[in-house]
Amino acid sequence: MSTDHELEAALRRVMTAGDADEAAPQRILARLERLPPQKRGLAWWPAALMDWNFAPAWPRLAALAGAAVLGISIGLSNFGTRIAADLDLVRVASADDAGAGVFDTDLLTGLRP
């Protein structure tokens, strides 16, 4: 084959000639009737949550729904308040706070703003 064109034509002819064994794909599929378990590592659920392609996926939706229910439950109960109080995150205003040195008492009521 002297020219590249002739070689190209021959390559396409040879490479696209029909395969003699047309039953082979069916044999392959028949052997795939019984499938082994899929590999799904223990850490699959964090990966599912971190999947940013935003395609709907039940693990992510279930986690979001669970977090929402948990947050609402904590909010509706006084559990959160008790925790905050235990951690001294909330201080009830008293006469000992800094406001006593900032605001003057009202002349009529005697109360501080």
Binding site: I28, Q38, K39, W44
Partner: peptide, 13 residues
């Protein structure tokens, strides 16, 4: 090809 397709199945997740 059988091996390749089995790998597709087991590693699909």
């Amino acid at each position: 090809v059988q091996d390749a397709l089995l790998r597709v199945w087991t590693n699909a997740p």
